[in-house]
Nucleic acid binder design. Structure first.
Lengths: 218, 218
DNA sequence: CGTGCTCGATCGATCGATCGATTGGGCTGG
DNA sequence: CCAGCCCAATCGATCGATCGATCGAGCACG
């Protein structure tokens, strides 16, 4: 349950950075949350910013890794549904981690910020190509592909801010609803049941299990 | 150009809070940006948090005020287009102010946070009723009205993070594109030209001029 | 003389980070 | 087996810097 000290520090930092913010989180506050002296923290980490950087890199890489595992044989509609699923699933099941990536990147210094932004751009490229291919094939129709991509990502990232696994909406309904909204926004409306079938056929569980090994060993 | 000292402080605070964040902005840094001693700040404001609170209240109230000026005679489609227009327009023309409201609310203490959230809820009610009316009349069709509202607001708020008035996209194209995406998401797809006509007919300039008097005296 | 502003000096508190000292489990050489 | 040692792990104390905020003196203008 507890895990190693380093893992506890990581978890406490994610929680505090997400809820209070990076600059509002003190080094002593973090230590207290773990139950150790603030000096001991530095036995496991570098600076506070090193810790933030490691958290964001891990989280970003997992999402990129998952997106990269989507079959290249998928058509644009299937690819977009898969991207929405992975994005929403990760933001719903790891809301604090993803919120830190989405909101606290600016706390990084120049070089680290650049590396973080590079990862984000790499991830967004998956979305850009799916949208571009869909528009080229006539499946999608949007006024501006870049704006549509930004809008979709922003909309899906919002999940981290409100969704609770203990609420009335299941993860399955959540991901399906967002995939449906995404396709509708791209002028490619589909029935809810149709989206469900698309997502089921994609069989994304292995991808999720590979990118987030610690969750759902079932 | 300069304005009174109080106005300069307000502007500098909005800029710093938006770019660095509330907790990362020092009182001396703020004073330096205005060109005065840090002590002098306290002649014009209360605490740093008072300043943040005043900024968020003003910004929130302006948006609520604008939304409240939309004619009650509008149909759901027109109302939603108007809400998207006002939201996107404000976030595009006042990106720093709106970013502070969207990202720094958690820096407020309990009572002030509650007051800020109450304003936000009041604003979101405009969106909720427009979506509900549209679904009831068959104009809109969504799986979950609450999720759709959250997704739409999140998507429109993102404008503050990337749009630049010096870019290639005009404010007119921006607002029209977002209104089009919003209607599409609600399964009410419309042609770009149709949205343009709807927005033109709404004649929202007087509303914008009333809620944001300092902008666009033309 | 008084009033509206501004500033230097300074407050106590807290910040992130480092230091040396101590502890205890595990490995090694005899 | 055990004496000697190493090293990861932890802590209390403390570093210099900065934090938000306050106070009273000084200044200019009416």
């Amino acid at each position: 349950m507890a895990g190693g000290t380093e893992e506890q520090i990581r978890r406490a930092a994610v929680h505090l950075f997400a809820t209070r913010g990076f600059h509002a989180t003190g080094i002593r506050q973090l230590a207290e949350a773990v139950g150790i002296n603030s000096s001991t923290l530095y036995h496991y980490m570098g600076t506070k910013e090193d810790l933030l950087f490691a958290i964001t890199q891990d989280s970003s890489r997992r999402l990129i890794d998952a997106a990269g595992r989507l079959s290249p044989a998928l058509n644009p509609q299937e690819r977009l549904c898969g991207l929405v699923y992975l994005h929403v699933w990760s933001h719903a099941t790891h809301p604090e981690e993803t919120a830190v990536v989405d909101n606290e990147l600016r706390c990084l210094d120049g070089e680290r910020l650049a590396r973080a932004v590079e990862l984000r751009d790499r991830y967004e490229e998956f979305w850009a190509s799916a949208i571009a291919d869909g528009c080229a094939s006539g499946t999608f129709a949007v006024q501006d592909q870049r704006i549509a991509r930004i809008a979709l990502l922003q909309m899906c990232s919002g999940v981290a801010g409100w969704y609770s696994t203990s609420g009335e909406t299941s993860l399955r309904d959540l991901t399906t609803t967002y995939a449906q909204m995404a396709l509708s926004l791209l002028s490619c409306g589909r029935d809810h049941r149709t989206i469900e079938r698309i997502l089921d056929d994609l069989d994304l569980q292995p991808i999720v299990a590979a990118a987030w090994p610690e969750t759902a060993p079932a």
